[in-house]
Design a protein around this nucleic acid. Structure first.
Lengths: 121, 121
DNA sequence: ATATCAATTGAGCATCTATTCATATGTTCA
DNA sequence: TGAACATATGAATAGATGCTCAATTGATAT
């Protein structure tokens, strides 16, 4: 009988492979890092944002252009750009009345390509 | 005056950079592909699933072990494994009463590494 | 100043999601 | 066969999320 000694654990299994768990445990990155990673992927986990990013692979665009391209309201796009901006994935540049957005990260394209590799295999 | 000719568009801007939009438009991958990509990242966009995957980087584990490692109920883990299984990211192997899960994809680690590059820059 | 236009912002709402709880399935062993 | 255990599954629920609508901010030009 191993596991769940006196600690308040939520797993109710009676037998745990203690050796395996401990080996894995020491390899796990800090909680916060894994949380941040999930937050980043959450940003990628929406097709509107994916489309925006993909469009910006090509060249910078203003909010209005993106809304037109995706046939969505400018408000919806603006909300999504805020999410992308907070994740440091895009950056704005003002030019008169327009605000042009461009990609602010070099890793995105590689991440997307690997994602497509998974989908297409 | 460009844009929104007779089509039923949702963008209410009066001036759209038609040339830019058209150039980007032809470069955009098919809608379905972008949707699938978002679906994949959605799976990565949860810290519980991130933790499960990271644990499985090390070695295969049974449901019970994962629950113990992450201090969560076995039911919660099982639900999440189902999501990962449907996304073809993990695969099960039965051994007696236990079901051992392991990673079913080579691209995941690269995707995660690029994600961490973004976070740590 | 005032009108106009692009973009942002906040509230409201419908939808989705992760977990919990209870129950079912499937395997082993006596 | 039946008891014990590991896992899966379905319903219920609280919290998150993406869009809409209305109002606001900020810039330009007359």
């Amino acid at each position: 009988m191993q596991g769940k000694s006196n600690e308040n654990l939520r797993c109710d299994c009676s037998i745990v492979h203690q050796d395996i768990v401990e080996r894995v445990q020491v390899k796990m990155p800090p909680e916060e890092m894994l949380y941040d990673l999930a937050e980043l992927f959450k940003v990628f986990g929406d097709s509107t944002r994916i489309k925006i990013i993909w469009a910006l692979f090509e060249e910078e665009m203003c909010v209005c252009d993106i809304a037109y391209l995706l046939n969505m309201t400018q408000s919806a796009i603006s909300h999504q750009l805020r999410v992308l901006k907070q994740a440091r994935l895009v950056k704005p540049r003002r030019d008169g009345k327009n605000i042009y957005y461009s990609l602010d990260d070099q890793h995105i394209e590689e991440i997307f390509n690997q994602g497509l590799n998974h989908i297409n295999e």
